[in-house]
Design a protein around this nucleic acid. Structure first.
Lengths: 143, 143
DNA sequence: AATTGTAATTAGAACTATTCCAATCAACGA
DNA sequence: TCGTTGATTGGAATAGTTCTAATTACAATT
């Protein structure tokens, strides 16, 4: 799969800002995440990446995911003790994990809620990241 | 350290409700968590538990922490890829993790915020758990 | 009190996700 | 094109946790 020029440019700029090089592998891992935004784990990214780039190593996939996160192109998503998942949705959103289907959905959050959460902190504290994870049962699994 | 009669009773009832036995080890691990509520990891609980009960094993500590969680007596707290921590505060609260001091604080949340979060879910979804973790810098570390 | 069935504990092995390491390779500026 | 430096690779190492099989403790019956 080919990265669109728009995303290619976004990738190159973000890497350059961080003083990092643009490589085939980073580009490919980024494209894998954009292609199917179902919050894959590193292993899943590895499997998908290999189908087009059979020589890529798992270590490289981890490295790429790390650099893409550090450059602000993707986000890491953690659920309890499960493997980290990766997500190219950069809006401030929460995640809903359905224990039944295993599906993970993005939940968009209003600025109001984010503001109220920030305001719950004691004076002087500053948060540069808020993780919100719902565990439950999605509509489909409720029938 | 001795479990107060009040907590001893709470423990026994909760275990009984789950069809589990009350044992010295479970009691002791519970008391360790109540004694110093600084969100210790399993390893830390193990270290503290051993000072009074030198024969307890790490596996048992993990088992006890698991059964106490399952019985609703304590909560597990996860931060990104860090080891799970344990907390006897049962109110619905978030956690603030200061990257500088490593300290973890409970952040009490209003019912309003919990309600707004629940209301952010698509119709039909139900959450039986909401995890909220702030990462940042606490007041003390800001000077 | 002895017996039985079941559950809990124990020590250590196994496992999983991730990181580290040393060698090779590739990108980019001179 | 060359050289420097950063990136990739495969495999080894690590950390946290779970699993396993054997032993021990508990509680209900005889």
């Amino acid at each position: 799969m080919q990265l669109s020029p728009e995303y290619k440019e976004r990738l190159d700029h973000a890497l350059e800002r961080s003083g990092l090089r643009s490589t085939k592998q980073r580009e490919h891992v980024f494209s894998v995440l954009l292609e199917k935004t179902d919050h894959p784990t590193a292993d899943e990214v590895y499997a998908r990446a290999r189908s087009e780039m059979p020589t890529i190593s798992l270590a490289t996939v981890y490295n790429c995911l790390e650099t893409l996160s550090a450059s602000g192109l993707i986000k890491q998503v953690n659920f309890e003790r499960e493997p980290t998942r990766y997500c190219p949705n950069l809006t401030s959103h929460a995640h809903f994990y359905c224990k039944e289907s295993g599906e993970i959905q993005d939940i968009e959050l209003s600025d109001e809620i984010i503001g109220l959460l920030q305001a719950s902190l004691p004076a002087g504290h500053t948060a540069h990241r808020i993780d919100i994870a719902f565990d439950g049962k999605c509509g489909e699994c409720h029938e």
